[in-house]
Design a binder for these strands. Structure first.
Lengths: 142, 142
DNA sequence: AGCTATTTGCAACTGAGTGTCAACTGACGC
DNA sequence: GCGTCAGTTGACACTCAGTTGCAAATAGCT
């Protein structure tokens, strides 16, 4: 029984469409990504990959993440003071709140904010290609 | 005749208050910051500093930026795919739009967005310590 | 199975920033 | 103005995240 999935990108299909080879390391890595609903960094992905196939190298993880990012299959987030973290693309757009005490990443979404961003960019004569909104905070004790 | 300044932090006073020494390298660096209204990175500050005093080292620039940041005298911005850039604190809070073609940094401010961020954090049970909002875009051709 | 361009693992490299340490110096007391 | 000495500096080694060069391995074709 596999974990049921909603809106998971079909990585193998995307790789095929990108005209690259479906190699063993790439299969292992996209398998891990399909299983993950957190925001692992390259080294964490590498560790999970090694548990499945101990010959996989960290360089290959980096190369594969770059490839997948270029294909739009994953998103890269460079939160402050740490390595890039990755998540599957395909869910709808959201921003992040990072818990400064635990490092937890909470996703949120605000159409109002997106809309205001567009208005601001337009007023400045720009077209937004992408944006980054991160809130860094601490849990209010109840 | 010196460039007239609006709301420039008095770095020497802040350094004194922080209980650290007013050394020659620190004087040169804060002098450069007072003169700058762009967002230079550590290496650019180093280059401007060397032009004034060729004995200053890059390590000292890094150390001084960290010191000033800790004192709240400057802000550090880690825009994507590049080194940290710095700007004087003391102006009022703003966010940044980065021109993807030129690297230009445009400052903007939206109270509405700030307010919405607070609402979102509150709804999630968090208190915002700080946040980061960056728009990456391209100039609309007229 | 055989061919070959793509991909891999390894190790060496890069860029940004930090740590170590002997030498230097600013701020205080005299 | 001069000595003292903790704070600071410059040089350089080091870390960390990520990239690159290259010989060996292999996916995907026939």
């Amino acid at each position: 029984m596999t974990t049921s999935s909603i809106r998971k990108p079909d990585y193998e299909r995307m790789l095929r469409k990108a005209g690259v080879r479906i190699t063993r390391p790439r299969k292992v890595i996209v398998g891990i990504l399909s299983q993950s609903d957190d925001h692992p960094d390259a080294f964490e992905i590498f560790q999970r990959a090694v548990a499945i196939d101990k010959t996989i190298s960290l360089s290959t993880v980096y190369r594969t993440m770059k490839l997948l990012e270029g294909m739009g299959a994953i998103h890269r987030h460079a939160f402050e003071g740490g390595p890039s973290r990755f998540e599957q693309a395909g869910g709808d757009h959201h921003d992040h709140l990072i818990d400064l005490d635990t490092g937890d990443v909470i996703e949120f979404k605000s159409d109002r904010i997106e809309q205001l961003q567009d208005e601001i960019a337009r007023a400045l004569g720009y077209e937004i290609v992408h944006h980054r909104l991160e809130l860094y905070g601490r849990k209010k004790r109840a």
